[in-house]
Design a binder for these strands. Structure first.
Length: 810
RNA sequence: GCCGGGGUGGUGGAACUGGCAGACACGCGGGACUUAAAAUCCCGUUCUAGCAAUAGAGUGGGGGUUCAAGUCCCCCCCUCGGCACCA
């Protein structure tokens, strides 16, 4: 075997050994080892296969789990396929083939690529969300949700994508467009399955205290849920018996309220119509009609001018006793508060703009931290920060926060309203009018209404169809399959019809990590013992695109499964981090249309798996975006070749290692261990290179060379295996124990430290280990280079930081 | 506007709990080997001045704490990501 690095000669050989022997499978319930569950996001198997981003992220996770196994941990590192959903279905429609077939092909291709990279996933735990054996349990969770009244049907208006011909969740609408296809969504009234995620809103926020997500991830979760305390207050309509309930989150500014705005869709407008003066009624009706024709996008356009119409009505603020005009305006949405809000122009920018447009008074009631009470005469001066309340009767002198509490107390005591927590989060629209998803296990019976399937009848399999083009009329393609749709009611046995909507893509991925722990269990979703052993997931590595929705949905389902006793922990993930993205050479996201896509297959073909992996890790920090650069991969390629030859040469000429070499090897072990565990692979590889630069001409003992081969294996596993073989070992190096750092070896007897004069480095001295300050001072004062800087000056202070640095102040 | 990251050579990026700024790599310059090229190897490379030893400046800008600041504190600028007529 030559010293020339030729990865094609050996990479596949070692892969076969790893995968056929299943050397790295996790061992269930093994109690004498520490368990470690490393989760990576399960990929969507699409036609083009593995993206360079997957290659990078999985290579990193693989390096970490290889190290952890060598350190003696029982590691669970599984993979699976999130294969239902629109991309495959749309592609299948285009090429006129069944999605089942396409999915199988894509998975086979993806699996081949992952293996070709040498990733040590636990292949006998592979799952596939489109496999009836898997989605049986997705359907089972749905039945449980239904049983607990957390899944319900409603015909609320939903977001409808006219291009994809399906409804979608609020979360999938970005800037008024369907995120998958960028088509503006419309509002459509459809009978929908909805999950009551709002029921879990508080816990989804509060339990974040028990996990170690990045701060930004926690903030995003909280932000999305958007918990706020609202103060709903009853105002009496002037000259009528009618009472309206208005909302505010700033009751401390009640005395500064100068108007009330109601959303155009608000039903109260119909009731109040009679009481409106003749001259206002017409314009109000006209305004309502106009706003009906406005699209969601138009309405949410912040930059457009404020519009609205005066109703001619007034109400009495039940806190300030002031008389406020009532306006209708589309800047208020029915879903916000009670759909009627209090306008306080002095302390809300939007209210100020509205007041200017309609010539309404501006009354300041909060002074700033400098006690400023000057008039608010421009938008820039609108004061929204904390301060002290004035001109506000019983709230005078209180801070804004205290005044809010006081107002809340007042409202409840006088029984003029209610303090209420509201959320931005809406219930989760769970129906899709498409074919390629989990069928919802429900039957509609004329007599019995909505009837769930019996658990023992699961899975309800998706029929294989010849035609599955969505009709666009709001019906799922399944609706046309009469012999599937027509069934009998599980309750009364009479003819009934199946639910034809399918579940969204999020369903299967909301619990997949549990199935990895117990993938072949056909009597339970997961056994209690395996759940208690493997969960919670120690580290979930993934992309930023899934930190709001997937995280929220899966945490919700997990809490539900905890509530019904399936799992033993209300939170699934202990730690969640976000990887960076590999951008194209032009600095832009890789895409087919831009032609800047780098294919992992090509790289592996040209450089081999190890160089590909190592380079992707070397490019930059784990959490940063990196720009692809074809030139710089050569640097890593060069190093890997040299490292391969160096170990072999050193082995042939091996003798005793000098103390210096021993120290160097130990340092390197420590550095590699720390940097890999902390996902700082770019510095691991730099450490290897640095070691090579400093030590490649030295003589090594066989034991030290074995150590070097062993520590190479997390990052360059094939190369390490090959070297282990060449040097006459009959085992797998990836199975060796991680070398123990010899702490004694790390401390040298003498060390060189810098000497500063007035904070500037002026020389260096060699001192002994454990020397006292006086001894060090003696050495420093004998050093000519330094004494030239001390001539004619008196030493004011001599600072010696043990083993680090000397600083002399003159 | 709010929330969360970031600003370090020509480039990607190092720098542990404050202790030699620029590790490692790319690029660039020079050299060795070669008839020549490729490959490989060696040397140099923050900026400014100088042949050089060396000196001065230097981590977005300004101020502060400290013997010592890329790192800590205050103010400002720029930038990336997320959310947003959220009342």
């Amino acid at each position: 075997m030559g010293k020339k690095y030729n990865p094609k000669d050996f990479e596949s050989k070692w892969q076969e050994q790893w995968f056929s022997k299943m050397e790295y499978s996790a061992q269930d319930l093994l109690s004498d080892k520490e368990k470690y569950y490393q989760l990576v996001e399960l990929p969507y198997p699409s036609g083009p296969g593995m993206h360079i981003g997957h290659t990078r992220n999985y290579s990193m996770a693989d390096a970490v789990v290889r190290l952890r196994r060598m350190m003696g941990q029982n590691v669970l590192f599984p993979i699976g396929w999130d294969a239902f959903g629109l991309p495959t279905e749309n592609y299948a429609l285009k090429v006129k083939r069944p999605p089942q077939e396409i999915t199988t092909e894509s998975i086979d291709n993806f699996r081949r690529q992952l293996k070709r990279l040498g990733l040590t996933f636990d292949w006998d735990r592979e799952i596939n969300t489109t496999d009836p054996e898997y989605y049986k349990w997705t359907q089972w969770i749905f039945l449980k949700l239904y049983e607990k009244d957390l899944a319900y049907m409603t015909d609320m208006p939903i977001n409808w994508c006219p291009k994809c011909k399906t409804g979608c969740a609020n979360e999938e609408v970005v800037d008024g467009k369907h995120e998958r296809c960028n088509t503006p969504v419309e509002q459509k009234k459809l009978k929908q399955w909805v999950l009551r995620i709002t029921e879990y809103a508080d816990r989804l926020i509060d339990d974040l205290d028990s996990v170690e997500y990045l701060d930004s991830v926690k903030a995003l979760q909280k932000n999305w849920i958007g918990r706020k305390t609202w103060y709903d207050i009853d105002y009496k309509i002037e000259g009528a018996e009618e009472v309206v309930r208005v909302s505010t989150t700033r009751p401390d500014t009640q005395f500064g309220a100068t108007f009330v705005v109601v959303a155009p869709e608000h039903e109260i407008l119909q009731r109040l119509k009679e009481q409106m003066p003749e001259e206002n009624r017409g314009s109000v009706e006209e305004y309502i009609e106009e706003s009906k024709n406005k699209s969601e996008i138009e309405r949410l356009d912040e930059s457009r001018e404020k519009t609205g119409a005066f109703t001619g009505l007034y109400c009495i603020n039940s806190i300030s006793r002031k008389r406020l005009p009532i306006y209708v305006a589309d800047l208020v949405l029915t879903t916000v508060g009670t759909g009627m809000v209090v306008g306080v122009p002095a302390h809300d920018k939007r209210d100020f703009e509205f007041a200017q447009k309609f010539n309404l008074p501006v009354i300041r009631v909060i002074e700033d931290l400098n006690g400023d009470r000057s008039e608010i005469e421009s938008v820039e001066k609108v004061y929204t920060d904390e301060g002290v309340v004035f001109n506000s009767d019983f709230m005078d002198g209180l801070s804004t926060t205290d005044a809010q509490k006081e107002a809340g107390r007042y409202i409840e005591e006088k029984e003029i309203g209610e303090v209420k927590v509201r959320y931005h989060l809406r219930d989760w629209n769970f129906s899709r009018q498409r074919y390629w998803g989990e069928p919802i296990p429900i039957v509609h019976c004329e007599k019995c209404g909505i009837v769930p399937l019996k658990e023992e009848d699961l899975p309800l399999e998706l029929p294989v169809l010849a035609e599955y083009e969505p009709s666009g009329d709001g019906q799922s393609p399944l609706a046309n399959i009469t012999d599937w749709v027509n069934t009998t009611c599980p309750k009364c046995g009479e003819p009934a019809k199946r639910e034809t909507n399918t579940m969204p893509n999020w369903a299967g991925s909301s619990w997949y990590f549990l199935r990895y722990c117990d993938p072949h269990n056909d009597s339970e979703l997961i056994s209690k013992a395996l759940d208690r052993y493997w969960m919670r997931i120690d580290h979930y590595e993934g992309g930023s695109e899934h930190i709001t929705l997937h995280l929220l949905y899966s945490r919700f389902w997990h809490k539900f499964l905890y509530d019904i006793g399936v799992v033993g922990d209300p939170e699934p993930y202990q730690k969640r981090t976000i990887h960076g993205v590999v951008l194209g050479e032009d600095g832009v996201k890789m895409s087919k249309s831009r032609g800047n896509v780098i294919s992992p297959d090509t790289l592996i073909e040209e450089y081999g798996a190890d160089v590909t992996r190592a380079y992707l890790m070397f490019m930059g920090p784990y959490d940063g975006n990196v720009v692809w650069n074809t030139r710089t991969i050569e640097g890593v390629n060069k190093f890997v070749k040299r490292w391969f030859a160096f170990i072999q040469d050193a082995w042939e000429s091996s003798e005793q290692s000098s103390e210096e070499v021993g120290v160097g090897v130990n340092r390197l072990v420590k550095k590699i261990e720390e940097s890999v565990i902390n996902w700082r692979f770019n510095t691991s590889i730099a450490a290897f290179m640095e070691f090579y630069n400093n030590y490649n001409s030295k003589t090594f003992s066989k034991a030290d060379l074995e150590t070097l081969i062993t520590i190479s294996s997390p990052i360059m596993p094939h190369l390490a295996e090959q070297l282990w073989d060449i040097t006459g070992h009959n085992s797998l190096v990836n199975n060796q124990a991680w070398p123990k750092v010899d702490k004694e070896m790390l401390v040298e007897d003498t060390l060189e430290i810098p000497v500063q004069v007035n904070g500037k480095v002026r020389g260096r001295v060699t001192i002994g280990r454990g020397m006292s300050e006086d001894e060090v001072r003696e050495i420093v004062e004998k050093n000519e280079k330094i004494t030239t800087f001390l001539e004619g000056a008196t030493i004011k202070k001599f600072i010696y930081v043990d083993g680090r640095i000397v600083n002399i102040i003159v």
